[in-house]
Amino acid sequence: MTDTNTENPETPIEPEVLVEKKKRKKSSKLLVAVIIILFIILFFVLGFGYYFYKNNVGTNTVYQEQIETLTDKLDSQTARLNSQLQQTKSSNDNVKTQIEQLNIQLQDSQNKSKLYNDDIQSLRRAVAETNIRHPSDWILAEVEYLINLSGRKLWLEHDLNATIALLSTADQRIVEMGDPSLNPLRRALLEDINMLEALPSRDVDGIILSLSSLERRIDTLMIAGLTMSEAAETDTKEVSTDISDWETNLDRSWDSFIESFIVISHRDKPVEALLSPEQAWYLSENLRNHLSKAEFAVYREQQEIYDIALQGALKLVSVYYDMGDKSTQQFYNAIQKLSKETISIDYPDQFKSAPLLSHILKQRISKSFTIESAE
């Protein structure tokens, strides 16, 4: 037994090596199989990925093209709608402008129609006036003219006498007609005349001539000069010749010496200063300005301005001119007399006879027109 084991020392080791070799072969085969399987899987994964990528890219491209197509269609439709909207707006503006023009034309037509109607009425009235059947009615037109003229004389020229004369002439023309139906008109005319005669009369020409005469006399007035009141007399003491009065003579000499330096004069009245030639000229012009202002106030019937101007003239004369002079005193009295004059008169706003006469004329013309239409 011992010899057998010694001669074949590798016999028991051989099966283990074979087993290990077999294991190695199996492991290498398994590894190769795993690698092959991995390659196959990787190949399938790459193929599937490539296929999926190609399909997705194609699909996205189609979708993108569809989106771009829809966007282009939407843009074109939006542009078309905007164009239609602008055209509609322009059409509305044109329609609105046409409506405004039609309204203006309609207004013009209405105004022209109104003017035509007024012209027709005027023509009808003119025809009726020319066909008045009573010749005496023409006198009423003359009476209307006289009343209108008297109104202009009163309110524009303030000529009261001429106004009364014109209304009296109109009354005489009504008397000549001998129409009893015109008695209310004549009564209104007489009331107007009596109202005007009751107004205070004013002599405009006389006042203006008086003021102009006073203006020419201004340069002849005597301006108050420097008047010195007499100083109070002081007692003068003479030096006596008696030697025993030497003390008294000394005091008097001393007082006389002192008074030669300072002289005090006592006066009971204030001393008025003299005016220079330039100041005297300004004084005369100022007085003349007051009188001229009063003249303008007479023409315009502005009583307040007239009174203020004459009061200013009276103040200048009393303060700066010699009131002891007879001419100055007469000048002052003349201004004072003029200051009492009334130059403003409250005239009536309307004659009572004017609306009554207008009503009578309308009645007669309407009656005449009615008769002409009936015929």
Rank of each mutant, 00 (worst) to 15 (best):
L189T: 06
V32S: 14
N194K: 12
G324K: 14
L102G: 10
V19W: 07
Q336T: 11
A224F: 06
E295V: 05
L291E: 05
Y53H: 14
A313Q: 08
S168K: 05
S213M: 07
Y299K: 12
D325V: 10
D307P: 06
V57F: 05
E285G: 05
S91F: 07
T220M: 11
V57P: 00
E341A: 07
I243A: 14
Q121V: 09
I208D: 10
D219G: 11
N148C: 01
G58M: 07
Q64Y: 10
L316F: 07
D346H: 10
E233W: 00
Q86E: 12
K21G: 02
R300A: 15
R288Q: 13
S28V: 12
D75H: 05
N249P: 09
A354M: 13
A162C: 01
T11I: 11
L123V: 04
E65K: 04
D179F: 00
L356C: 08
L123I: 06
Q84W: 02
D93Q: 03
R300G: 15
I208K: 15
R216E: 00
S201D: 05
Y306S: 13
Y51P: 00
W246V: 05
T241Y: 13
I223K: 08
D3S: 07
S28G: 12
L274N: 01
L38A: 15
V175Q: 05
A309P: 04
Y321M: 07
E304N: 10
S276F: 04
L85F: 00
S260P: 09
T163A: 11
Y50P: 00
T61F: 09
K29C: 04
A33C: 11
K29E: 06
Q172V: 10
S327C: 01
I208H: 10
R124I: 06
T71D: 04
S260N: 11
E304F: 05
L357A: 02
Q98A: 15
E144R: 12
L85D: 01
E10H: 14
T6E: 13
L149W: 02
K326N: 06
I41Q: 10
D268H: 13
T342H: 09
G49C: 14
Q302Y: 00
G312T: 05
S339C: 02
L81H: 08
P12S: 10
V298W: 01
P15L: 13
E16Y: 13
I147E: 09
H158N: 12
G324L: 12
V57H: 08
N148E: 04
I218Y: 02
P348Q: 13
S344M: 02
I40Y: 09
H359F: 03
V19E: 04
Y53N: 13
L196P: 03
K112I: 14
A162D: 09
S339F: 01
E375M: 12
L196H: 01
S368H: 10
E304V: 06
N8V: 11
A33E: 01
H359D: 08
D72K: 09
F39G: 13
L226R: 15
K23I: 08
Y50L: 13
E191K: 11
E230V: 03
A232T: 08
A141S: 01
Y320F: 09
K26F: 07
A79C: 00
Y347A: 06
I37Q: 03
P135A: 11
S150F: 03
N60I: 04
Q172G: 13
A128T: 03
L156I: 09
F39R: 02
L199N: 02
V263L: 11
L291V: 09
L166E: 03
E14Y: 13
A313R: 09
E68H: 04
G151P: 00
E142Y: 03
F369G: 06
N103A: 08
T2R: 11
S150T: 03
